[in-house]
Amino acid sequence: MQTKHQISARALTAAALLAVVSMAVSSCATSSQAASSNPDGSVVVRYEGGANGVNLPELAEDLGYLQGIDLQWVGNNTSGPASIQNTATSATDLGSAFAGAVVKLQEAGAQITAVVSSYGSDAASNYTFYVRDDSSIKEPKDLIGKSVAVNTLGAHSEAVLSSYLRRSGLTEDEIKQVQLVVLPPSDTEQAIRSGQVDVGALSSVFQEHALAQGGLRKFLRDVDVYGDFNGGQYVLRDEFIAANPEATRTLATGIGKAADWASTHNREEVVQRLKSIIEKRGRGESTEPLKYYRSFGVSEHGAIKDEDFSRWGQWLNDTGIVEGEITPGDYYTNEYNDLAVGK
């Protein structure tokens, strides 16, 4: 089992990580390029995807919503914080992460801005914490001294769990005794079943696969804490936005259109479209996980709201990232999403 990280140590961990990222941003600021263009005038946008799955930019491209954009895949990534760090340091042009991670990176000095929602939680698609059927964990206090698997520190699952425990009346000392274990989503289900961890956070196809096998019991859903919400955003570097306002508009609006397309078409049609995208790109992937697809969870044209950031204010205070109330408008803009501004 991997090393356990206690909630009490996360502020120091986050601070150290952000210091490294801040230095990386500074070191590449003079050498990074806002974007590159092809001879036909199309703007190259480098991004990371996920194996055996399709994200909203890929769907938008396939639907014809990214005219003038040359979307270039540079690899896969399962960590939101790492995704937007890569964007901030010019390793990619487009990244996606949980809203709290976006705030963290900007507070560290990264010149990035969120332009459209990237994922969300609703009744069909959400982050859920599971335990084994025979687990004694049934209420918040039962988590004291227990281990919880999350895919990365400083992201969605950690923030939801921390907020839930605090709302449930646990003291800071008690919360510090809840141990977080970083595991890739592909390993979390087995870790719960084998007893390597007491609780594990699962979403999307990993959650659906686990449920299909039986033997696990739901402990907590993020929608039980917050209701339906957009949890993360796609970000671009500020220099990219300044140099390529029309490409930025095409990206933000196209991704918003793709989210709307997925939410307004029946599941079978969406799955067939996603399957065709995977097959056409020829990366030797499996389309089998698509049978577990439920939704992208993104609502209202991918428009970003103040509450998408403000709901994490207490957690951001507790982890020492910001002091006092945050100003959501400092971290995002809907200016380039024509659907969000009614154009």
Results as ranks from 00 to 15, higher is better:
Gly232Ala: 13
Leu180Asn: 09
Leu59Cys: 01
Lys305Asn: 05
Asp134Thr: 06
Gln196Asp: 13
Ile277Lys: 02
Arg283Gln: 12
Trp315Ala: 07
Leu170Gln: 06
Lys138Arg: 13
His265Cys: 05
Thr188Asn: 08
Pro328Ser: 03
Gly109Tyr: 10
Ser90Leu: 05
Ile278Lys: 03
Leu66His: 11
Asp338Ser: 13
Val21Gly: 03
Pro245Ile: 03
Ala15Asn: 15
Ser118His: 01
Asp222Ala: 10
Gln111Asn: 10
Ala124Lys: 08
Arg249Tyr: 04
Ser135Cys: 01
Ser162Glu: 05
Tyr331Val: 13
Ser37Glu: 13
Ser90Ala: 15
Leu274Arg: 05
Ala51Asn: 08
Val223Asp: 11
Glu48Cys: 11
Gln67Ser: 15
Gly154Trp: 08
Glu107Thr: 10
His209Ile: 09
Thr327His: 14
Glu268Met: 02
Thr171Asp: 07
Asp260Val: 12
Val199His: 06
Ile241Leu: 02
Ser186Gln: 14
Ile278Trp: 03
Asn317Tyr: 14
Val225Pro: 07
Glu61His: 10
Ala91Thr: 12
Asp133Ala: 07
Gly282Trp: 02
Leu220Cys: 09
Tyr127Thr: 09
Ser96Phe: 10
Val181Ala: 12
Val148Trp: 10
His265Phe: 06
Leu202Cys: 04
Leu290Gly: 00
Gly41Asn: 06
Asn337His: 10
Asn230Thr: 03
Val178Ser: 05
Thr250Ser: 13
Phe229Arg: 08
Glu246Ala: 13
Ser121His: 12
Ala34Glu: 06
Ser32Gln: 15
Lys4Met: 13
Leu56Cys: 03
Asp134Leu: 00
Leu251Ile: 14
His301Tyr: 05
Glu268Pro: 02
Ser147Cys: 02
Val322Phe: 04
Ala82Ile: 08
Asn52Arg: 07
Thr87Lys: 05
Ser168Trp: 03
Val21Ile: 07
Asp40Gln: 07
Asp122Ser: 08
Ala82Thr: 08
Asp122His: 03
Gly324Ala: 14
Val150Phe: 06
Glu268Thr: 08
Thr253Cys: 12
Pro184Lys: 14
Ala99Val: 13
Ser22Leu: 06
Thr319Cys: 01
Arg283Tyr: 12
Val20Lys: 14
Leu211Pro: 03
Glu189Trp: 14
Gly50Pro: 08
Ala262Tyr: 03
Ser8Val: 12
Tyr292Cys: 00
Ser125Lys: 06
Gly68Leu: 08
Gly53Val: 04
Pro289Asp: 03
Ser276Met: 02
Ser32Val: 14
Arg311Leu: 10
Phe219Gly: 02
Ala340Asn: 07
Glu172Trp: 06
Ala24Gln: 15
Ser286His: 09
Ile321His: 01
Ser263His: 04
Glu279Trp: 01
Asn77His: 07
Asn38Cys: 10
Ile192Leu: 04
Ala155Ile: 05
Gly320Trp: 02
Glu323Ser: 14
Leu202Tyr: 01
Asp222Gly: 10
Ile175Trp: 08
Lys4Ala: 15
Ile304Pro: 02
Thr264Asp: 01
Gly49Ser: 12
Ser32Cys: 14
Val150Lys: 03
Gly68Lys: 12
Val271Ser: 00
Leu170Asp: 05
Asn266Ile: 00
Tyr47Met: 11
Pro81Thr: 11
Gly302Asp: 04
